[in-house]
Structure formats: C-alpha cells, structure tokens
C-alpha cells in the first residue's frame, strides 16, 4: 500500500498536470447551455464527417417526390382536388412533412446509438444534466432536417419547375412549419428511444407509426377522397393539420388556420415526449 504524502492535498500524478490542485477545482463543471452547445456541435460534426448519413436521409424525400409526381400526375385528378393546382403543388408540402417525420425518427435513432456505444454511460458519470444530451440530439437533428428540406425544395424548383402560388415567403413559412414538426415529433421518438433502447424496435416503431400517419392524412390525396374510416383517422391525425397548413401557405389557399391545431398538437407531443424522455434516460442502464 502506498502511503500518501502528508501535506499534499493532491499528490502530483504522473500525468503532466498543467494546473495542480484538487481535481474539482481545475474545472468546476459546465453550464447547461455549454453542455447543449458542445453536444450539439458533436452531433453536427458527425454529420459533416459522415456525409453518407445526410445523403441517405435525402434519398427518401427525393425519391418520394419524383415517384409521386411522375406516377400520380398521369393518373388524373380526383374530384376533390383544389382547382388550378398541379399534383406537384399538391404533394410538395406532404413531401416536406414526410421528410420532417423521417428526420424525427432519426433523433430517436441517434439516442439509441448513444445508448449502445456507451456515450450515455460516459455522460452519466460526468457532472452534466442528462437532458443536455437529448436537447442536443434534437437540435442537431433540426439542423439536419432543415438542410434536407432546403435540398428537396431546390431540387423541386430546379428539376420539376415547382413554383407555388404563395411565393417564396409563404413557401419558407411552410418549410419552417415542417422543421418545427420535425423538432416536436422528434421528442416522441427520443422518448421511445430512451425506453426501448435498441435499434430494432425503434425501426419497427417508425414503420408502424409512419405509414398510417402519412397515408391516413391529407398527404397524398385529399381527405375527402379517402374511405370513410380512414377519413376519421385523417381528421385526428396531427400530420393532416401540418400538411394542410403547409399546403395552404405554399399555394396561397384558405386554410392556413390549421396552423393553430398543428402547432398546438406538436407542442403537446414535444412536452409529453420530453418528460418521458428524461424519465426514460434516468432509468438504470
């Protein structure tokens, strides 16, 4: 057994120590704002260093955009289609919201990754607020979703000649709404991640949740064209409101008032999701 030398509160370790003194006095912890900033930067850096993630994230909305517009434009329009609106105009906001939802799932996947690779265990041993990691994940994902949405809009404008009636300002507003939906819905998936803790059930959950959410909504065809039972679901589906709002804004149609339920429902999801996420993360690993 080594005898600690009397009189040296912190015996000099072999580690070259730039600031000798009691350990805790060197760095006295960081503020929650710093934690969130540093951790968000970390997630964004991974995005830069691994652009494949961003590229794959773009595939789906781009493919959906091109497939839907090419296939459904040829099928002719249904009776309930808004007059003077092309299918591209109609479906574009839905593509943005779909991208938002996919990105939301990614927030959850990121948290599962952190649980799996031990980052959560590491961070839990540090004097930081556990929610910082979750907030950072959600913010980094917000940035990612915004980049993806920007790329999709640029592609639609340049390649498909997308030119919504509402003009640039309202298009931006509808994109902004999609980004907001990403962020709020992301909390539902972050919460799921802290409870499920494994990638597989997360993937399953996203498929199970997303297909009905997107198809039982006004995303791809007007709600009035849906069968009766799907129409009922579509009317309580928050995505219907989100898509209706985005569409009304972009196409300068009446109905932007759907923004109120869209924002309220989303905010509700974020609050409930946030609480469950923090509680879930606190559970023993």
């Amino acid at each position: 057994m080594t005898t600690p030398s009397i009189g040296t509160p912190n015996p000099a370790p072999p580690v070259p120590d730039p600031a000798p003194g009691p350990a805790a006095a060197v760095w006295n912890g960081s503020s929650t704002a710093t934690q969130i900033r540093v951790l968000t930067g970390r997630s964004l850096r991974a995005l830069v260093s691994d652009p494949g993630v961003l590229a794959f994230g773009l595939f789906q909305p781009v493919i959906i955009l091109f497939v839907l517009t090419q296939v459904f434009t040829g099928m002719g329009k249904s009776a309930h289609f808004p007059a003077g609106v092309s299918y591209l105009d109609f479906v574009m906001p839905a593509v943005l919201v779909d991208n938002a939802v996919q990105s939301a799932v990614q927030s959850g996947i990121g948290v599962v990754d952190d649980l799996k690779n031990g980052m959560v265990a590491r961070l839990r041993s540090l004097p930081i607020h556990p929610a910082s990691l979750l907030v950072a994940r959600s913010l980094a994902n917000l940035v990612r979703a915004a980049i993806q949405i920007a790329v999709v809009i640029v592609l639609a404008v340049v390649v498909l000649g997308y030119s919504p009636k509402g003009g640039a300002g309202q298009l931006l507003a509808s994109a902004g709404l999609a980004v907001f939906i990403t962020w709020t819905l992301g909390w539902a998936f972050i919460a799921a991640a802290t409870w499920l803790r494994r990638a597989e059930p997360m993937q399953n959950l996203s498929v199970i949740a997303l297909i009905p959410l997107m198809f039982a909504s006004s995303a791809y065809i007007p709600v009035s064209d849906l069968p009766e039972w799907l129409r009922v679901i579509a009317k309580v589906n928050p995505l219907t409101y989100a898509i209706d709002t985005a569409r009304a804004l972009a196409l300068d149609l009446p109905g932007a008032g759907a923004a109120v339920p869209a924002v309220l429902i989303s905010a509700g999801i974020a609050v409930v999701g946030g609480v469950f996420a923090v509680v879930g993360l606190r559970r023993p690993l």
């Binding site: 031990g118 980052m119 265990a121």
Partner: peptide, 13 residues
Amino acid sequence: GLTGQFASVDPQL
C-alpha cells in the same frame, strides 16, 4: 472517472 466493461467513446469522433 469511470471506465466500464465496454469502451464508452463516440465512434464518430
């Protein structure tokens, strides 16, 4: 400081 049974580092950094 804690070193667990499995390396706890960010594989992307």
